[in-house]
């Protein structure tokens, strides 16, 4: 193997610093959330305890964070499923280059680049003026979709740009209907990428703040609840909450990545029956 140039070591050090920059702060609050009961918002540690985690489980100390967590989780699942289904359908549609596809594509890009507070404000105004009730599962749900769907769509473009059309032609030649081709050929092939779309759908919804701000109604989602805490909570309890919800996110990400890896392996193992006779 070729010897590594000196630039490699400089760049590797830069990369290391970048990773430290990314993860250092969150590690710090991870440590600080174990502050002793008398400890403050910064170092030094005043003893080590689970005091602040215990506080989280006492309703009166921090408000309704468990209700907020349940709502965020449910909303995340709703947004995830919708994002996967709608993105796949739209991805299939865009392969056909139908009339109006350019307009729809630019609408999706607009949805991605529009300042989030505009969606929040606009949806809030419409629901108010029409007399609909603002609720996280209706107005909040729709607002979050304007953020997750463009990501799902872009991933689908990336997937279908690399998709080998001869698989579909082979299926058609053997007499498969259009639906059978999608169900038994296209979907199994793109399945691992759909895990990626699902990951975006869930996590972007679970962490979304700006687009839910004016569209969640009287029941807060978790990010709104956490933001509310930043203005009136001055103890490490907020670090404990941050640590827990970040660990939860890491867990979710790990589940999605593992699923994608397993799907890929399974496909590599079972995907081809070449050489196995009939």
């Amino acid at each position: 193997m070729e010897r590594r140039p000196r630039s490699f070591y400089i760049l590797a050090a830069f990369f290391g610093l970048f990773v430290l920059f990314l993860y250092g702060p969150i590690l710090t609050i991870g440590i600080l959330s174990f502050q002793g009961p008398q400890g403050g918002l910064t170092f030094p540690m005043n003893g080590v305890s689970l005091h602040w985690f215990r506080d989280l489980f006492q309703e009166q100390a921090v408000g309704d964070i468990w209700g907020a967590f349940r709502r965020s989780f449910g909303l995340g699942l709703m947004v995830m499923v919708t994002t996967v289904v709608v993105s796949v359908m739209a991805g299939l549609a865009f392969r056909k280059r139908f009339t109006g596809s350019a307009v729809l594509f630019y609408a999706a890009i607009t949805s991605l680049v529009i300042p989030s507070i505009l969606v929040s404000l606009g949806v809030g105004l419409i629901f108010n003026q029409l007399g609909f009730k603002i609720h996280w599962a209706t107005s909040g749900f729709g607002s979050q979709l304007t953020w997750t769907l463009p990501f799902g769509l872009l991933i689908m473009f990336a997937v279908f740009n690399r998709f080998d059309k001869s698989y579909e032609e082979a299926a058609r030649d053997q007499g498969a209907t259009a639906w059978q081709t999608i169900r038994f050929v296209v979907l199994p092939i793109i399945a691992p990428s759909l895990i990626g779309v699902a990951l975006f759908g869930f996590t972007l919804s679970y962490d979304e703040f700006a687009r839910t701000l004016l569209t969640a109604g009287s029941y807060n989602t978790l990010p709104l609840e956490i933001f509310g805490m930043t203005t009136n909570v001055t103890t490490p309890v907020i670090y404990a909450l941050g640590t827990l919800t970040t660990l939860f996110s890491f867990g979710i990400i790990a589940v999605f990545i593992l699923t994608a890896v397993i799907l890929n392996r399974r496909r590599a193992r079972l995907g081809s029956d070449a050489g196995q006779g009939v």
């Binding site: 702060p25 969150i26 918002l41 170092f43 962490d207 990010p223 956490i226 933001f227 907020i238 941050g242």
Partner: peptide, 13 residues
């Protein structure tokens, strides 16, 4: 894929 708000809070210490 984690919360922006938490990532901001984590700069305070």
């Amino acid at each position: 894929w984690t919360s922006n708000i938490i990532r901001m809070i984590s700069w305070i210490p």
